[in-house]
Amino acid sequence: MTKFEKILELLEKAGIDYILIGGLAATAFGSSRLTTDIDLVYSRSPENRKRISQMFSSLHPYLRGAPPNLPFQFDERTLSSGLNFTLSTDLGDIDLLAEVPGGNYESLKNDTIALEIFGQKCKCIGLKKLIELKKASGRPKDFEAIAELEAILEEQNKL
């Protein structure tokens, strides 16, 4: 089971530049859907990659779904060489994403809001942009969530 609270706490303590997207962001806005991982869009700046590799080193990250004996080292070099990583860690599953259909950290950072989730402050994608990202992904499971998120947005707009 993913320990969302602890992951968010570690991200904030490490000073990592990230944006919460995906199922946990949807839940923060009131979605009834459950999620088993945490989806983060991260800044690819050298300083941020260093902070990420330092924080993640204690979590023993491994490529989710990869064979158990596949050599894998998650460090600054790995982050520099790749973009998106679906990881299993000691605290649960984390999708660390440099790019998603619909944007990257730089293009999305102006569409964020500050939220407190599980008692932890975090930077979360706004609801309207979350809906756009889910539409851009084209995945059937995202299309299922869009109607609920649009209803939540409609209710918020009535206030």
Rank of each mutant, 00 (worst) to 15 (best):
R49Y: 07
G23A: 14
P46Q: 07
L40N: 02
D37H: 07
R44S: 08
R49I: 02
M55R: 05
R49L: 12
L34E: 14
T27Y: 14
L24H: 15
I19A: 05
A25D: 11
D39E: 13
A26I: 01
S45H: 06
S31M: 11
R44G: 13
Q54T: 14
L20S: 13
L59S: 13
I19N: 00
Y42Q: 05
Y18S: 12
M55Y: 09
L20A: 13
S32W: 11
H60L: 07
I52L: 08
S45R: 05
Y42I: 06
D37W: 03
F56A: 01
S43H: 01
T27L: 13
G22P: 04
S32K: 13
I21T: 15
G22S: 04
D17I: 00
S57V: 00
R44F: 09
A26S: 07
R49K: 15
G30F: 11
A28D: 11
T35L: 06
D17P: 11
R44I: 07
R44Y: 12
G23M: 03
I52W: 12
L40M: 00
T35H: 12
I52S: 01
V41A: 08
S32F: 15
S31G: 10
S32D: 15
E47K: 15
M55F: 03
Q54G: 08
T36E: 09
K50F: 12
S53V: 00
Y62Q: 03
Y18N: 11
N48Q: 13
A25H: 09
L59P: 11
L59R: 12
I21V: 14
G23I: 08
P61S: 00
S57M: 04
R51W: 14
S32A: 09
S45E: 04
L40Y: 06
G30W: 04
S43D: 08
I19P: 05
P61L: 02
D37Q: 04
S31L: 08
G23C: 06
S53E: 00
E47N: 07
V41M: 12
R49C: 05
